[in-house]
């Protein structure tokens, strides 16, 4: 769809706001509706829109495969490490009260990192799934 001027210009304008909205949903999720799951899906959707309009190779240049694959594992690892941090600081697994001298701040800190882990894994998995499905069609086309 690279030849459609209107789509290209509008998409370019929208993608910036989609990514910004994803960040808003991620970091404002403690005060309003939102959180890691939604933000991950929205940011993946922004990249998917980019891939649909500008083609998969362009999207691969923006977010390479190895970054996406690292994200898939890194998010779960970050989540699990937050739990381990609770043990190291003298609490239970996934105990946030010990992460800061002030228990309420500890909770906020724990929730922040856990949501970050969820965001990374969810956006990585969604993007990876899209890359795989879209890439398969392209391979078949080039061969036949």
């Amino acid at each position: 769809m690279k030849d459609y001027l209107v789509l290209r210009v509008i998409a370019k304008m929208m993608i910036a706001f989609m990514l910004l909205f994803a960040l808003y949903v991620q970091f404002h999720g403690e005060l309003g509706p939102g959180g890691g799951f939604q933000a991950g899906v929205i940011s993946a959707a922004a990249i998917i829109l980019y891939a649909i309009i500008y083609g998969l190779p362009a999207a691969h240049r923006v977010v390479p495969e190895w970054v996406v694959e690292t994200m898939v594992a890194a998010g779960v690892l970050l989540f699990a490490l937050v739990g381990v941090a609770g043990i190291v600081l003298g609490g239970n697994y996934l105990d946030y009260f010990v992460l800061d001298p002030n228990p309420v701040h500890g909770q906020e800190r724990g929730i922040f990192w856990v949501e970050a882990g969820v965001f990374i894994t969810v956006s990585g998995v969604m993007l990876k799934i899209f890359y795989l499905f879209a890439g398969r069609g392209r391979d078949e086309e080039s061969e036949s």
Partner: peptide
């Protein structure tokens, strides 16, 4: 307990971590 007004986020990330 958590300092987070959005109860869904609080339960999701903290109570039911």
């Amino acid at each position: 307990e958590t300092g987070v007004p959005n109860i869904v986020t609080a339960v999701l990330a903290s109570y039911r971590g």
